[in-house]
Amino acid sequence: MIFGSNHIELVNGAFWFIVSISFILLSFITFLMIYFVFKYNRKKGKKAVNIHGNTKLEIIWTVIPVILVMAMFWYGWIGYRDLKNPPKDAMIIKVTAQMWKWTFEYDNGVKTDSLYVPVNKAIEVNLHSLDVNHSFFIPAFRFKRDVMPNRNNSIWFLPATVGKYDIACAEYCGLNHSAMYSKVIVLPKQEYDAWMKNELAKKNASSTQLPIVIDSTKVK
């Protein structure tokens, strides 16, 4: 696993927590089934014993799963809470989705096709769609958020490792849904600043040729 963002620990933790419990229970059930099938096989001339039930047992195997799933719920919830509340100093980037491409707009007006971010800096992405539903999905960072018209969603993350990661569209959006990939490129602070300076210069040089911004409402 690549450790690319802050959310990974909690998501992976909850995932492996539930997987482990599930694996233990599943093995237990499967073992019992197979064991009983062999032990009490009719070919061995076993005679059946009618047992109608056992209330104590029923209570046990109701209460224990309830406790287990509550623990799972709690683990899942704290990870989500973390994902939901961005720190105040987060850098805001506007993401626009349309069939079938992503556009990223920085607070100084620079627009790109790939998402460039500095490492170890909280990023909040505000998600807008121009047409149908999309979903902003970064598998390596363990989160996604739906991008819908007439609705403003946002999500934040803190890229922890320098590198390039995939951005996919996870909500079916028509013909080229599966080609709606982009990249998030995490750069060291200096490199990012240099890149941004360069982009800004490019933008100012060609500002007259830039297409009109389709949706320029101020990001909340």
Binding site: V11, I18, V69, Y75, G76, W77, G79, R142, K144
Partner: peptide
């Protein structure tokens, strides 16, 4: 696994 909110954010869809 999918009922857990944080994990759902990753594996949904």
């Amino acid at each position: 696994i999918q009922g857990a909110l944080s994990v759902n954010m990753h594996i949904h869809d």
